[in-house]
Simulated assay, not measured.
Amino acid sequence: MFVCHTLSRLTTALAVSLMAAGTLVATTAPATAAWSPNVMVISPAAPMANEVFATKGRLSTAFERPVKLQRLKSYRDQTWETVHTAVSDSAGYFYLSGRTSADRSFRVYAPTVKHKGRTYARIVTPTKVVRVAVQKVTLTVSSKVWFPYQPATVTLQATPARPGRAMYLFASTSSHIDTTGMPAQASTQDSRGRATFTFTPDSDEVGLHIFLLGKAMAWDGAAPTSSAALEADIVAPKP
């Protein structure tokens, strides 16, 4: 059967794709970037829902002090809640991480602190609205008619792009595609958010009607998402 053939072609790309990136845990940033003082930088600028994002920056004080990433809890009352606490390094650089399921306002707050007998006022960065990117996966095929021993190309395009994110391609002779099991093929996104797969049907697969579906796997807290299904037929070449 078609699925058996495609599973036998699975390469080490599957093992690579299972190594999804982990949660950001660093608390300080390398003191190499010449950031403007007391301004935070969000990366990625538009995270997916619940995807971990990094918050980097440099305080105007060049010594270690507590810093907090805060989220606006109530717009009416202008109350804030702390989502991550860290310590800036000796040059004032900080590195925090957060996540959000919807568009929310964030800021970095450094409380008043004493250092070497001197009191330094609190620092509050300008507020930044973190807007959540809607993720989407699109599946395309080079042709909906496949011939034995002739490669057919299947492409998955994910937005937003996350290079290295695992991409699974499922293939079935049933319209009910189980995306919880082993995929027919696996790869990872390139810098454009694209993953390309190749199928080369065998002669004993002529006459099969194939259902295809792509899936971007979970990534740094963001949920997996699937494409719409496409269909293809494996036919004998014309004499």
Rank of each mutant, 00 (worst) to 15 (best):
M1Q: 09
V3G: 00
H5L: 10
H5D: 12
T6A: 14
T11W: 08
T12V: 12
L14I: 05
M19K: 09
G22Q: 10
T28P: 01
T28M: 03
T32S: 15
W35Q: 01
S36G: 10
P37L: 08
V39C: 01
M48C: 10
L59F: 01
S60W: 04
F63Q: 01
E64R: 06
L69A: 06
Q70C: 15
S74H: 09
S74C: 03
Y75Q: 14
H84I: 07
F94N: 00
S101C: 13
S101L: 10
R104Y: 06
S105E: 13
F106S: 04
P111A: 04
R118N: 11
T119D: 06
A121D: 15
T127N: 15
V132S: 04
A133N: 06
V134W: 09
V134D: 09
L139K: 06
L139W: 06
T140F: 00
F147C: 02
P148G: 02
Y149S: 15
P151A: 10
T153G: 02
A158G: 08
A158F: 10
T159P: 08
R162I: 05
P163W: 01
G164K: 05
R165Q: 07
A166T: 04
A166W: 03
A166N: 05
S172P: 07
S174K: 06
S175L: 07
H176R: 08
T179G: 02
M182V: 13
M182R: 15
A184E: 03
S187R: 11
S187P: 07
T188C: 07
Q189P: 00
D190W: 11
S191D: 11
G193K: 01
R194M: 15
A195L: 09
D202T: 14
A218E: 12
D220C: 15
D220N: 12
A222P: 05
T225S: 08
A228H: 09
A228E: 15
V235T: 11
A236P: 00
